[in-house]
Design a protein around this nucleic acid. Sequence first.
DNA 1: GAAATTATTCGACACGGTGTCGAGAAACAA
DNA 2: TTGTTTCTCGACACCGTGTCGAATAATTTC
Lengths: 221, 221
Amino acid sequence: MMSAMSPRPAGAPPATGAGSRRKRSKGDLTSQAILDTAEHLLQTRSLDDIAVDELTSGAGISRSTFYFHYESREAVLYALSERAAEGLYDSAALWLRRGSEPPEDSIRRAIAGTVALWRAHGPVLRAAVRARDTSELVRGFWSGVARRFVDSTAQQIEIEREAGIAVPGPPTAHALATVLVTMNESMCYSLSLSRRSAARDREAVETLTAVWLRSVYGVSR
Amino acid sequence: MMSAMSPRPAGAPPATGAGSRRKRSKGDLTSQAILDTAEHLLQTRSLDDIAVDELTSGAGISRSTFYFHYESREAVLYALSERAAEGLYDSAALWLRRGSEPPEDSIRRAIAGTVALWRAHGPVLRAAVRARDTSELVRGFWSGVARRFVDSTAQQIEIEREAGIAVPGPPTAHALATVLVTMNESMCYSLSLSRRSAARDREAVETLTAVWLRSVYGVSR
DNA sequence: GAAATTATTCGACACGGTGTCGAGAAACAA
DNA sequence: TTGTTTCTCGACACCGTGTCGAATAATTTC
């Protein structure tokens, strides 16, 4: 007796990353196929417009099998977000500028990196941002990402202020950082919604960079 | 014969505004009741979590009657948005500052007005912003509002630049305006999500004002 | 390699929400 | 009153979700 009570892989399968050394079980493969189908469909439709059977027929399995691999559509999105947000963390590290490189360069580079990443994974990131208001899981994950960005930015602002390079408070370093990071996100969101265009991207990067520079350092040119 | 083909009031009932002089037909009343119920429920739940029968039972009518008054839940949101966005247009007029008032004051006043409006109608405005990605109708309406804001801001920036008060381009007046307006919106969105707090609101207004001032005028203080 | 165990898949089902239809009640006009 | 327009309702067809238990495939154990 004792029915199997198979341990459903709640959030994401063990190590969905590319570098997974574990043996590729059949289940891993279909989990992956579902993820891929989802990312593909997300390029056209919003998450709640995508029915579960579209996900599964794209992966060549029956609808009910889906629920063996994921708890819900949101769980799929969560797994997808993790995959896409890895790159974001790298960008976050760029805030902390190296050596004596002028702030303008490091800020522009970081912003350009963020824009590029939104271009690469726009549909997933947009869906994730939208799901913040819906899914506790996604909200938690995403607010972690945001905090990381805000904190390191605020820290950097404080350093520059103490060095007398950046213009001092009333806006708290933290408050300023929050606004700037939020601004970046929403610009990237709407940018990723428009047709891909190098010129548009460049202008967005330049504009955001200018706002960052002027807000933090007060300088113009 | 010739079945009535009753002219369903597509978007919103004739003149949903408060100043409507038309006779209060029974239908107007229930349309209104639906709207009120929707705004009330929106304070707790997201739009797609709200079922049509919750809207109608709140208004004391049967579910199918809903479809006589509105085409869909989105149409309700559209009507609600119009109601809430009226105030926004007033704020937009504030960009164009009067006489010789220092820019800092008019900008702060305009931003404070926007924040206040988001505090008053947060749930509706949030739902509207979310529905931009979903409903063509809402997207059109909302992008009209946004354009109005951006255009008048850009125009004002250009005036200030020609007067030598504001720091000159690379960032086009229009590009800069877009970023700033977008920033305001997303900050208001997330602010309206947090528990009401005069202190928090004040800090947000100050921070946004600082970013506007520094981005447009380059000054620090 | 046969049996036991575990992992994966499936079809069927119950449920809940949507949107449409045609019948009819209520309000109003003549 | 009668006719017309406005408004309301219940019934219905449809679609998507999530759960269950049984069936099959893969893997381990002996």
